[in-house]
Nucleic acid binder design. Structure first.
Length: 469
RNA sequence: GCGCCUAUCGUCUAGCCCGGUCUAGGACACCGCCCUUUCACGGCGGCGACAGGGGUUCGAAUCCCCUUGGGCGUACCA
């Protein structure tokens, strides 16, 4: 076990989205590689917006992706006493102060500042209030503000972006405790990251601007400052922040659409990180090869096509047994019960090269499990006519007698060709239609074999009676 | 507006730190050909980028500066 301690700290105000998942993944990989500790912390200080449903959704998504944590989940809502105490400490040490300005006043000041072209920052009205003033305001609601150091600069060495420096004059006195007594993000994140012993804070790019203020809080509280690594954002195709407008952003939505977790993991890790020209990585390879040194510094655009390609790859190379079990679930979602049909694993083998998602695979697998096949009118007129009767009759005979393995089936078709005097092209397609209900399906021998003798004979019989009727 | 970050094919990126081996490599997508019992898979090939301008240098995608574009922040959200 090394000393590395990292965390993923989502706020439970919705499902786990693509961006959060990537941040979680990067943290997870860093921890596993260094044999360090991966902590999960739920940032639910905003009581209004946080929900249990969101917490569950996030936990589910992480477990689906295989991102298990070593400690947690911790809930910030369980730790309010700690934050209160830390706020009190800063208050007593004169490093924070009570501010009585109302939100309305603040909004007005902000607008005024904007209008005159100034930076919209807190003007420090309550920063140096005398004791008498505080007593006079004793019954008024107040927030607690952190007393930011106004001079000099704060800089840190970002593991991804290099040295980043801020002029302290840019920072204003931010609120660390709301008027309802609850603490705010920029404060608790410091207290928790410090109290939980984190030494690397790996998070989204959108937090770089918070970092200098947070560093000042670390210092004010006497905590060691951890290292920081800010990973660039994920954007939509229009280079705007990724949102629902660009398509699904929820991790679990991808599962529902028939994606494999390893495809999403592989896609996400390559969004920003690279290892030479390599594209395909198993989780174990990622744990071995991942490195912050090769994480890019600029935002990247989410490309659903490439994700699809990776999913296709993992379906193609996946274990049929495992995929078969999953297929059953997707069939069920489409209202198809696989219980009395062919072995799902065998079905998978015939469809692995033909499906980009498990949803697509389930659609293509439906015919294996549905006895009543709906024949498209045009297809029926072309392939299921009296003209084909001899084919089906011959096949019915051949199939009921042959050895039912690949060679035997192939041989049965040879017999049919000889008996009817037709070329394979004339026999294959009608048979495919008769057995699968459509013109596109896996290889006809495979279909016959996987379907099994009984079902093949049944379907051929049904077709013959239709033709005769 | 101000601040911070950032900039190689349409997209993800290699190369950049340690200038020459880059007539810039790979992948997705797209196009073409081949394979083929349908649909696919697969194989081969093609299209396609160093944002612009200044420097530094014998030499710059690689180093420096400016411009422009993009992202983020600027909350009693996280």
């Amino acid at each position: 076990m090394s000393e590395l301690r990292v965390r993923f700290a989502p706020s439970p105000t919705g499902y786990l989205h693509i961006g959060g998942a990537r941040t979680a993944l990067f943290n997870f990989l860093m921890a596993r590689q260094a044999q360090g500790t991966f902590i999960l912390r739920i940032e639910d200080t905003d009581v209004e917006r946080s929900t249990q449903e969101s917490v569950d959704a996030i936990l589910n998504a992480m477990s689906w992706l295989g991102l298990s944590c070593d400690e947690g989940p911790f809930y910030q809502s369980d730790r309010f006493d700690l934050y209160k105490q830390k706020v009190q400490q800063l208050l007593e040490e004169g490093k924070a102060y009570k501010c009585y300005c109302s939100s309305e006043e603040l909004d007005a000041k902000r607008e005024a500042a904007m209008a005159s072209g100034d930076k919209p920052r807190y003007d420090g009205t309550c920063r140096e209030l005398a004791d008498e003033e505080h007593e006079k305001n004793a019954n008024r609601p107040y927030v607690v503000r952190f007393k930011t150091c106004p001079e000099g600069e704060t800089s840190f060495n970002d593991r991804i972006k290099g040295t980043i420096t801020f002029n302290n004059a840019e920072l204003d006195d931010m609120i660390i405790q709301r008027s309802d007594g609850t603490p705010t993000y920029n404060f608790v994140v410091v207290v928790d990251d410090a109290e939980m012993g984190l030494n690397l804070v790996l998070r989204g790019d959108d937090h770089v601007n918070n970092t200098p203020r947070q560093i000042q809080i670390y210092q004010a509280l006497g905590y060691p400052v951890p290292e920081f690594a800010h990973v660039p954002m994920i954007l939509g195709s229009d280079k705007k922040r990724l949102s629902k407008r660009h398509g699904a952003t929820s991790v679990m939505a991808y599962r529902d659409m028939g994606y494999l977790p390893e495809a999403l993991v592989n896609y996400l890790v390559r969004l920003g990180w690279s290892h030479g020209d390599d594209e395909i990585f198993s989780m174990d390879e990622l744990i071995e090869k991942f490195s912050l040194d090769h994480v890019g510094r600029s935002a990247s655009v989410f490309n659903p096509e490439k994700l699809l390609w990776l999913n296709e790859h993992y379906i193609k190379t996946g274990d049929p047994q495992r995929l078969g079990a999953l297929l059953v679930e997707y069939l069920a979602a489409q209202g198809i019960d696989a219980k009395n049909g062919p072995d799902p694993a065998a079905v998978v083998v015939t469809l692995q090269d033909r499906s980009k998602t498990l949803v697509e695979m389930a659609e293509k697998a439906a015919f294996y499990y549905q006895d009543v096949l709906i024949y498209d009118e045009q297809v029926q007129e072309k392939f299921l006519t009296p003209e084909q009767r001899p084919i089906f009759e011959a096949l019915l005979d051949a199939l009921s007698e042959c050895v039912f393995d690949h060679a035997g089936i192939e041989n049965a078709f040879q017999v049919v060709l000889e008996r009817t005097g037709l070329k394979f092209g004339k026999v294959g397609q009608p048979t495919r239609v008769a057995l699968s209900g459509g013109t596109s399906a896996p290889g006809i021998y495979e279909v016959v074999e996987v379907l099994g003798r009984g079902r093949c004979l049944e379907r051929l019989t049904t077709v013959l009676s239709r033709i005769n009727g």
